[in-house]
Amino acid sequence: MTGAVSAGRLGVVSCHACGLVCQDTLPQASHHRPVAESEACGNGARGRSHQVICPRCGAPLHRRRPNSIARAWALLLAGLIFYIPANVLPVMYTSLLGSGSDNTIMQGVIEFWKSGSYGIALVIFIASVLVPCTKFVVLGVLFATSQRGSRWAMKERAKLYRMVELVGYWSMLDVLVVAVVAALVKFQGLSDIEPRIGILFFGMVVIMTMLSAMSFDPRLIWDGDTE
């Protein structure tokens, strides 16, 4: 379509770790099929038995990340499951002069909003609600379209993927806020802030979705393009 030639056509493969372009000496099983298809089937044993290593940095070479879509789906699903307790269970316990209360993420946002700190409420809302939810939807769409070898809006999908990688880790914000305030507010009896189980689930959501985005090979987006 464009002037660019794909690595598969040239018979080369680039190293994931150091970027060196090497001659493709990997087993030729999937040469004439769209790569997405064979990777999605997820035959782990095949990749492991003939491992080819980058001559420069020693990382294993592969045309596409092994089992990319299956792994990405699994991790995304795990993240989605963890997202429920992360929102339902309290993330923080605050006690002030004897009266204690458990807070969930949304309660924290609402509290900021009510106290007039609209900016902070918005920042926390974006980092802990909007970003994870958008990530679930975007990654789901990317995985599903790539799995089907879709040729729809490839450039935009590629951009979407890069955006998800760029903003995804900001969701860790809530975990760090809880860490800092829990470390600070330790006045026995008078005032105490303690982390609660919800923050563990929320942290897991962030880690799972980051791992999911990383296991997805963005080159699969373009594999439908090979006519």
Partner: peptide, 18 residues
């Protein structure tokens, strides 16, 4: 194995350039 240090492959779509 032959290597091509003068080439670069796009990490995101596997297009190869000099």
């Amino acid at each position: 194995m032959k290597t091509f240090p003068h080439l670069v492959a796009c990490e995101h779509c596997d297009s190869v350039y000099e």
